[in-house]
Structure formats: structure tokens, C-alpha cells
């Protein structure tokens, strides 16, 4: 971009200084910066309201995008067992390596944190937005809005965020639900908190004591297909 900007500056300077010997129109085009605002190209067509409604299903934490609808924990439980439990487990505990949805409260500082909807996710809207667009896995966008409210209510219940199985989630009470880990996220601050990694004079000679091997990938032996490493021992 800066190169193009420089080229444009040069072209302009040449125009001003050169008078009659200024650059040709073709040269000016070559120097034009396509990232700069320009007259509209007149390409594309207006999106219709129906088209926007069909694709614009996203939901934000402030509730923007939530459709009208409702579903109870009990309804969600029934649906979950039918459509979700084969991967996520009956209570959201996860089957095999499929995502765990429940539990893990208080583990984020532990040696092996358990990051679930209840223990980690900061916003409930994410659950609705994600189910709506991507679940069930392999049959996306097949659930009704009421079904998604019900499933979201059940996920809240399996994480003890709501206790009553008669609880009904809907577009009106949705934003009143607060997630336990919501306050634990902060904006990227690496440029200040990791300031020490900017170093004008990195050490070149005798920078550390003689190193010793403290761990080996080969002793863990989880590399696939046996093609990646020599068997030395």
C-alpha cells in the first residue's frame, strides 16, 4: 500500500513539475491506489429483505438477532437425547473426543482446565448462534427456533446455571442470563504485558549455561504413522 501511495505521490509530483512532459494517462492508472476510496463501480445488486432474513441469523450478546421463540429445559432434554447425546453425551459430558458441554466449574486455573459452556463461555448468545448455524453436526440449520431455545435452556440446566426443569428460555428473558466466566476475558495486551520480547540487542554469545535435554517427543510416542521420526532406541 505504501509503495502504491509513493507511486501516486511520484505521479502527482511529476505532473506538477513536468507540465507538458507529465506522465501519460496510462502511467497515472498504473500508479492509482486501488485501496483508496473511488467512485462506485456499480457492481452487485440490492439484497432483498427476504434474502437478508434468510442468511442474517446471527445473534449478539446484547440480544440483537434473537428470533421470537421459546423452549423449556425439559423440552431441551428430550431433544438433546435424540439429536445431540450421541456425540456430547447424555449430560453434556462428551463422548470420546467430542466437545464436553457441561461441568468444569473452578478448573480454569487447574493443571488440566475443563473449558465447557458453563465453566468458560462468556456469552449465552454464542450458544444460540452456534447451534443455529452449525448443529446438529452433519445436519446444520435443521432445528426450529423453539428447538434451539429449548436446547440452550437444557445446556444452561446441565451447567446448573438454571435449576428448574420447568424454566422456559425465550427472546425476552434471554439477555438476563449471565454466564459464570463472563468477567474473565480481557483485550489483547501483548504489546504492553510482553514488552520484554521487544529487544534491540538480543544476546549472541555465551547467552546461557550449557543446555541439557529435559524432555523428548520420542518418549511420548504420539506422532502418527511412524514416518516422522527415527527409532533410535
Amino acid at each position: 500500500m505504501s509503495k502504491s501511495a509513493n507511486a501516486l505521490t511520484l505521479v502527482l509530483a511529476a505532473c506538477l513539475l513536468g507540465g507538458m512532459t507529465g506522465p501519460s494517462a496510462a502511467q497515472q492508472m498504473a500508479g492509482r491506489d486501488v485501496t483508496k476510496p473511488s467512485a462506485k463501480l456499480g457492481l452487485g445488486r440490492a439484497a432483498t429483505a427476504e434474502e437478508i432474513a434468510a442468511w442474517d441469523t446471527d445473534v449478539r450478546p446484547d440480544g440483537r438477532g434473537l428470533p421470537v421463540g421459546k423452549g423449556t429445559v425439559k423440552q431441551g432434554d428430550d431433544l438433546f437425547q435424540e439429536k445431540c447425546a450421541s456425540c456430547h453425551g447424555e449430560f453434556g459430558q462428551g463422548v470420546g473426543r467430542w466437545p464436553v458441554l457441561a461441568g468444569g466449574a473452578g478448573t480454569l486455573k487447574a493443571d488440566r482446565p475443563d473449558k465447557t459452556v458453563g465453566s468458560f463461555w462468556p456469552d449465552l448468545s454464542t450458544v444460540f448462534d452456534y447451534i443455529k448455524r452449525a448443529m446438529p453436526y452433519g445436519n446444520a440449520q435443521s432445528l426450529t427456533n423453539d428447538e434451539i431455545y429449548a436446547l440452550t435452556a437444557y445446556i444452561l440446566s446441565m451447567n446448573d446455571i438454571v435449576k428448574d426443569e420447568k424454566f422456559e428460555l425465550n427472546e425476552k428473558n434471554f439477555t438476563s442470563i449471565k454466564m459464570p466466566n463472563a468477567a474473565a476475558f480481557f483485550e489483547d495486551d501483548r504489546e504492553t504485558s510482553e514488552k520484554q520480547f521487544w529487544n534491540k540487542n538480543p544476546c549472541m554469545k555465551d547467552c546461557r549455561p550449557v543446555p541439557k535435554v529435559t524432555g523428548r517427543a520420542m518418549s511420548i510416542d504420539v506422532t502418527p504413522d511412524g514416518k516422522s521420526g527415527p527409532k533410535v532406541e
Binding site: R60, L108, K109, V117, T126, D129, Y130, F186, R190
Partner: peptide, 24 residues
Amino acid sequence: WQTREETSKYTDLLADGNSRKHTF
């Protein structure tokens, strides 16, 4: 939007239990 991939994933959990977000 706080989508799944910028909250539950692609955030950086630190040792103190807090998580850095928007680490683009």
C-alpha cells in the same frame, strides 16, 4: 459478535484463569 470461534476457541487462557481475547 462474540462467536464460538472468538470466545470458546481462539482465546488464550492464562495461568491465573483469565483469558486474553481478540489475540489476532
